[in-house]
Design a protein around this nucleic acid. Structure first.
Lengths: 233, 233
DNA sequence: TTTCGATTTAAACGCTTGTTTAAAACATTT
DNA sequence: AAATGTTTTAAACAAGCGTTTAAATCGAAA
């Protein structure tokens, strides 16, 4: 237990520094000496307060994600909306805020990369993360899309549309090193989340609607063989 | 230079093993002792043939990507098609083959993760990769989308649609650890690339068309404030 | 002031890393 | 068969890692 006001600060300084260093370097390349240098504490502090490097990492990742989902809950404003389109919009808005907010997962460079790194290179406790945070999130989106697709939609249909929606959101966070290299995107612009919400919602609603049409039109024609190659009009 | 048939095999055995180990563990966590153990060669071989760990990594990544883009060129069958929708389909097909083919970037687990890892944690030579491979690819897609959006589309419009299309493709490769945890996707099924091409093309063409409508309808109404919240019908 | 538990510190520990070395093994040429 | 240049090998190297240790430092209670 901490004694003075500075004590809790030591633990927090380590957590902050660890988030940055782990995010920038990855678990293996990050050294506790570098973390302690950034935090301005002694190297033994990490073992004293957290027991070791691995436990520190687990704490950092879990704390970060928990805090984000506390601040931007999965179903924020979703239940209150009656139209599935509005709910899709609320979902996309929430996902983008979790991914792109400066106080969110993407305080780039640093903490935000932790998530991208976990995706590319899952930790042993990735399963906990999936079960606790991602699975409930996916369930909410799945319900919305299922409603938009209407009866007749298979699990495959729902799943693919789900990935189409999430993929658009994630790409901004995941491929940020590439996106920023290719085009000038000002991620610090506070209006960008709203703008992207507009775009992705519009894009996705049309995409889902198009899939819905093919489902209802598929009753009389085969599905396996050579698929539709032409564009709509 | 190699003397016998086995000699070229040593270099290739190292390259193969390095692709697997680097992909599974990441650059830092991968040890040359593990790579050599997998390859069945002496630890000194890597320095003898490649000069060191870093040069080996660079060679592995560049070789892998070059080979993929040789096998699945950016504009495969795109120029021959007259309709922009058909060209979009060809582009998506190519992107998915590069990302998901078993002989492609995604010989999962292993080499495929190298790409995801490079996205989340770019190497010093990420700039070379972007300039040589990604920028030309993005240019092709940009031209197709520009044509689909028609006159009046801003660079922002084109860019966002571009990311919407690429994001869908990449998500299968990037978030594979999560996707496979959530739903049963058989990535070894040879027809999956064609199926996903169908879905993403259909989804994207409708999305782009929807964006096109808003562009042409935006001449008389403001764009900033509260955006469309309702769903299509 | 003295005492005592909690924190901070500098130094050291054992271990693994990438790399180097010098000798052995090999295939080919003279 | 002897000589030559190339490849393979086991062993060693210095450097850096996470972790431990034991002493120093600190703040509050007695």
């Amino acid at each position: 237990m901490p004694r003075t006001v500075d004590e809790r600060s030591v633990k927090e300084k380590i957590l902050d520094a660890a988030g940055d260093v782990f995010g920038r370097m990855g678990y293996k390349a990050a050294t506790i000496r570098e973390i302690c240098r950034v935090a301005g504490v002694n190297v033994a502090s990490i073992n004293y307060y957290f027991g070791g490097k691995e436990d520190l990492y687990r704490t950092v990742v879990m704390d970060l994600i928990s805090r984000i989902f506390d601040r931007y809950p999965i179903d924020a404003g979703i239940d209150s909306l009656s139209s599935p389109g509005g709910r899709l919009r609320a979902f996309i808005h929430g996902a983008l805020r979790r991914l792109l907010s400066p106080d969110g997962l993407s305080g780039y460079p640093g903490k935000g990369q932790l998530v991208a790194r976990e995706l590319a290179d899952p930790s042993p406790f990735m399963d906990d993360m999936v079960n606790e945070f991602i699975r409930p999130t996916a369930a909410v989106l799945s319900a919305i899309i299922s409603e938009l697709l209407g009866t007749g939609a298979t699990i495959k249909d729902i799943m693919r549309c789900q990935i189409s929606v999430i993929g658009q959101c994630f790409h901004y966070a995941m491929a940020r090193p590439i996106v920023t290299r290719l085009v000038a995107v000002d991620f610090s612009d506070p209006t960008i989340i709203d703008e992207l919400t507009d775009h992705i919602t519009r894009f996705s609603l049309a995409g889902i609607e198009s899939v819905r049409h093919t489902i209802h039109a598929a009753n009389d024609q085969p599905l396996d063989a050579t698929p539709v190659k032409g564009e709509p009009q």
